[in-house]
Design a protein around this nucleic acid. Structure first.
Length: 571
RNA sequence: UAGGGCGUAGCCAAGCGGCAAGGCAGCGGCCUUUGGCGCCGUGAUCGAAGGUUCGAAUCCUUCCGCCCUAACCA
């Protein structure tokens, strides 16, 4: 393969890859991978690394693997293996036929462990987890400061090759109970990097694995598995987040001391968070397990499944990720930045439709009772090819309650007593009368329309300041809408205000369900997952909870609302 | 404490010794049959202090702040 030219080297990783290519490394191949542990659903932070590894492979004409890092059977499940594949594919990363499992390399890893033992570079250790920690020189608290004692060799460090081989075989054979022995690399107990102080390679776990069943009772650790898996698959650039930077010397040590078929390179980048949400599996798990949300795919969650259900497109996520860039600094992206890319994509791609979420009845008193007509509406002003549709109009309509004010402030140019507005694609109407109940609550509006303004233009050239969306009451479908807001009420829930926990910062108004909403009939047969822009309101997506009798829409994002903003400023 | 990493406008981010890109947010305006979209305008001397240099965000020194690791998790 020729080194790829003209690739945009817009970040330090692409620069490294380009340099490696220019230097003729890896037979001029580029091959990346994404290595999830199947112990939960993936979130948009994972999405960033998936898309980073995948797009680099794409740009350099290389390949991309999906490999499950399934070395800890205690936490891993097939359900997650399936969910992760679904989510990675949906995001747009294509591993073609290269779906792998680290568990598929268990036998090879075992052979390489024996190799290390024979070389005198690994030994079976009988220390307990706690003792290993002590011998390693784990930092201890001394008053208000931490002290790091030096490391000490394990008393089992100098067992003979024969004894180690024998014990290791018997570990595999199941002769020893969980936790009683480990296989450790013999590196350097004085090494400044604690990862190099004789790391554990194998631990005993009499637990069934979701793929290998009861074949094994010893399982390799992450460090012992990762680089070798990369080597087996011919991975050239192994991208991971910054917390693994400390592990790179160990990653390299294994590759240097084993007869591996290939030499991959690990490169670390900074992961970013998003404001008003949490992004670690641990916290997401708690939210799901504690029923703070409806499940892994709750539309308020930053999980890929949640974003998908909410109506976010993969294209929006791809643009978002590309927009953030890649660096070694770990930042906090504002949720507004994600929302911007969601709107940007949906604005171009989604069909417009009219729906009323907080209905106020309007009677057009000079429109003939019992008649109706079909008006033509544009499906997407951003995309002429989306065509037009017809929308029924009749004597009784619903408009948004927020679009009428009896006693309007200065810059309110929607409907008010005596004022004239345009109903989108329909007519100009004027409010003649406000009908109230005994308590003064507004029940309905009586308006007149101007037949000459059909379609929304006045032949006499008179202007109107506002255009309102509406639906025809007898024709509209009643729907449920689910209006979402930030899951948390603070930017960073993980550093909550004094005396509060992160769960205390959950936003009690993150979900508002409205059951009395109305929508034009054109959406009656829309497929689950269809996305629309409800004119003047926001982007909505047809939820899987919908039935033919009752459609349910999730609000993906609101439209920007400068009137709302101006009002909030006035308050 | 040890080892590693980061520090350019509210957020993200270019820049790699020669007058500090861009995007998001904010603000002001234009346009408008979505108070949407689009368009125009608007902000920083680069964590701090020293030093090298004709010239430093970019090189050196010291300091400060934040993050990660110190599991037989990944």
């Amino acid at each position: 393969m020729e080194p790829t030219r003209d690739v945009e080297t817009r970040d330090f990783i692409r620069r490294f890859v380009a340099e490696d290519l220019a230097a003729g490394k890896n037979e001029c191949r580029v091959h990346t991978r994404w290595p999830p542990e199947p112990n939960g659903y993936i979130h948009i932070g994972h999405g960033m690394s998936i898309l980073l590894s995948y797009s680099i492979a794409q740009e350099f004409g290389g390949k991309f693997n999906l490999r499950f890092d399934d070395t800890n059977p205690v936490a891993e499940e097939t359900e997650f293996v399936e969910a992760i594949q679904r989510d990675v594919a949906w995001l747009g990363a294509n591993w073609e036929d290269r779906l792998f499992f680290a568990s598929g390399y268990f036998e090879q890893l075992y052979q390489w462990a024996e190799h290390l033992i024979r070389e005198g570079k690994a030994y079976v250790c009988d220390l307990t987890a706690e003792q290993i920690s002590e011998y390693r020189g784990t930092a201890v608290r001394d008053g208000d400061r931490m002290v790091t004692p030096p490391g000490n060799d394990s008393p089992f460090r100098n067992r003979s090759v024969e004894e180690n081989l024998d014990l290791f075989h018997r570990m595999r054979a199941g002769e020893f109970p969980d936790g009683s022995k480990t296989l450790r690399a013999k590196i350097d107990m004085m090494h400044p990097n604690l990862n190099m102080r004789d790391p554990v390679l194998y631990r005993i776990l009499h637990v069934d694995h979701h793929r290998t069943g009861s074949t094994w009772c010893i399982y390799p650790t992450y460090d012992w598995t990762h680089g070798q898996s990369d080597a087996i698959e011919g991975i050239t650039h192994s991208l991971c987040t910054l917390e693994f930077e400390n592990h790179r010397p160990l990653y390299d040590w294994f590759l240097d001391n084993l007869p591996v078929p290939h030499r991959p390179r690990q490169i670390e980048f900074g992961a970013v968070g998003i404001s008003y949400t949490v992004m670690s599996k641990r916290y997401l798990k708690q939210l799901v397990a504690g029923h703070y949300v409806s499940g892994w795919d709750d539309p308020r969650l930053p999980t890929v499944a949640g974003l998908r259900r909410r109506g976010v497109t993969p294209e929006a996520i791809q643009a978002f990720v590309k927009g953030i860039g890649v660096t070694k600094s770990e930042g906090m992206i504002e949720m507004a930045y994600l929302e911007h890319h969601i709107r940007q994509d949906l604005n171009k791609a989604s069909a417009r439709v009219m729906a009323v979420l907080n209905p106020l009845k309007v009677v057009i008193t000079n429109y003939d009772e019992g008649t109706s007509e079909a008006l033509e509406a544009v499906n997407n002003p951003e995309d002429p090819s989306a065509g037009v549709r017809s929308v029924p109009f009749s004597r009784e309509l619903y408009i948004e309650r927020e679009d009428f004010m009896e006693d309007p402030p200065k810059k309110f140019y929607r409907l008010s007593p005596g004022s004239e507005v345009r109903l989108r694609y329909a007519y100009f109407i004027r409010c003649e009368d406000v009908i109230k109940d005994e308590d003064g609550n507004i029940l309905e509006l009586h308006c007149t329309y101007d037949p000459a303004t059909r379609g929304g233009d006045a032949p006499d050239g008179r202007k109107v300041k506002a255009t309102l969306h509406w639906v025809s009451a007898p024709d509209a479908l009643q729907i449920e809408t689910r209006l979402y807001d930030h899951l948390f009420s603070v930017e960073n829930p993980l550093s909550p205000p004094d005396g509060k926990t992160w769960l205390d910062t959950l936003n009690p108004e993150s979900l508002e369900v409205r059951s009395n909403c109305w929508i034009e009939p054109s959406v009656a047969d829309a497929a689950i997952g269809s996305r629309f822009q409800f004119e003047r309101l926001g982007y909505f997506c047809l939820d899987a909870d919908s039935t033919p009798e009752k459609l349910v829409f999730n609000r993906t994002a609101t439209l920007r609302d400068s009137w709302l903003k101006a009002q909030q400023k006035a308050d």
